[in-house]
Write a protein that binds this DNA or RNA. Structure first.
Lengths: 144, 144
DNA sequence: ATTATATGATTACATTCGTAAACGAAAGGA
DNA sequence: TCCTTTCGTTTACGAATGTAATCATATAAT
């Protein structure tokens, strides 16, 4: 049952998670309902996705009579953070800053989060290098 | 030939791209060489990955006798940015800021990039909302 | 010229993902 | 009680991915 969260989550599965995150405790019917207008997937498809999410441990299925009540086992920010971190780690350290900057540019951010970012930046400025070294090859090259 | 960059790039393929980005103009031998110590993939595996990358249009293969000289068709930052943006777009607007903040926290960033971020933040502060609204359900709920 | 080496091309095969049809059983309605 | 709707379960199937073996051929070495 309690499969460890080793497996990643796919694109379509995310769509389902979003619904569950918003609905909180929910069931198949409600989920199918939400999708009705949002996607033209068949109910069958969505049921498959729900099943896979349960298998992967991203959704918890509490039995309720012969139905289930679903809840997310991880919250959205946390999950996205993990995925994003994993993705970023594919890339050379040297350019991570640029990417984060560009993401910042095209995302809407609240005043509160901007404030926290400023704080974090001030912190980092104390020790930030002029240039983050490339860590791509074994033969530590400088450019990538 | 010039297949459009519609297809995404997989995890293993990224590893190969990193090598190519660092080496610049390169060939199979050099790539295999780099991997020798880095991964325990067989040469065969790496050759498959190269082939797929060429097919997908991420690597350009210029014929040189009976060999090829490979170059990346997109630079690393750009590619990562696109992947990351796509990933972030899976999630509710409301929480993007938090995720970016967390990424910032655990990435090394150069002084120059920090500077640019500060500038961008000042810019955003002018119009930033107290809270970015949730855009998950059709029935615009406030929480997700 | 013969053999060994290097390297591109073909084929393979299990797993995951996107997408879905079909089946079975419970429950609600007529 | 019989039919229909609802939901969970089983099965399906092609594409993409991770991982690789094998084959063919051009080149270098002997």
């Amino acid at each position: 049952m309690n499969e460890k969260n080793l497996s990643s989550i796919s694109d379509s599965e995310w769509e389902v998670m979003r619904i569950v995150w918003t609905l909180g405790e929910t069931n198949t019917k409600q989920i199918l309902n939400e999708f009705q207008t949002k996607k033209d997937w068949t109910d069958s498809t969505i049921k498959t996705l729900i099943r896979r999410l349960v298998q992967k441990g991203w959704l918890n299925a509490k039995q309720d009579g012969r139905r289930y009540i679903y809840t997310a086992t991880v919250n959205q920010t946390e999950m996205m953070y993990n995925e994003a971190k994993t993705l970023l780690n594919r890339m050379c350290d040297m350019h991570k800053g640029e990417v984060i900057l560009k993401l910042l540019e095209d995302s809407p951010v609240s005043k509160g989060d901007l404030m926290k970012m400023k704080k974090e930046i001030s912190q980092k400025e104390k020790t930030a290098p002029k240039m983050v070294p490339c860590n791509c090859l074994k033969t530590g090259s400088t450019i990538c």
